[in-house]
Design a protein around this nucleic acid. Structure first.
Lengths: 97, 97
DNA sequence: TGAATAAAACATAATATTATAATATATTAT
DNA sequence: ATAATATATTATAATATTATGTTTTATTCA
């Protein structure tokens, strides 16, 4: 395919966001940090599922976690993703509050 | 999952865009129309592959085709998608020129 | 009408993703 | 060091996606 190289990287980024759970996580982390435990409660999903989805987002450099004791607080670390989510969903997401 | 309903629709939209070929197609159609034959040449992919990817984009209301004789000219019909692609890739895509 | 061209739909094998239970690791507190 | 808590990783079965060859449908033109 011609020009494939140019589209694979942004396609990977979109793919990481293209799942309801991951999209919800990223939207929820737009303006605040959150730990896995609280996320799993808010999302009503098993902890392993949430951690697995976070691993996918981390692998694309979309979020990153900072450990504080036994907890790891996540936040969105990619500015382009923040912009994309705002265009897609608007700016007032407070799922994890 | 809590709030799932709100994220499934936008996640589906991102998913449709989250493939190098489809992203390239949408980017190429941002400012111009194009037919399947020219796309397949530019993308160096079988016609069936291109048509299948277009069907996925059509199913999400991202592109639509207008028939002109034997040819079908496609364009991007979703304004939010245009915005997203511009944020993701910038504004100067001319793959199909 | 019949041939040629363009595009869509179908079939399917290979590959990737998803959800989640089970297990492992890291940190803190006793 | 042990228990408790939080998070990450692994394994895996179910499901979905991908690429592409083949077939079908639509349109034009001779």
């Amino acid at each position: 395919m011609k020009e494939t190289i140019n589209y694979e990287e942004p396609a990977r980024l979109l793919k990481a966001l293209a799942h309801p759970t991951r999209l919800c996580i990223v939207a929820g982390l737009l303006n605040d940090t959150c730990n896995v435990n609280k996320m799993k409660d808010c999302l009503a999903l098993p902890q392993s599922t949430v951690s697995q989805q976070l691993a996918i987002l981390r692998a694309q450099g979309i979020v990153d976690g900072v450990r504080n004791g036994t907890e790891v607080y996540y936040k969105v670390t990619n500015e382009k993703v923040k912009e994309l989510i705002k265009v897609l969903l608007g700016d007032k997401q407070d799922i994890f509050k």
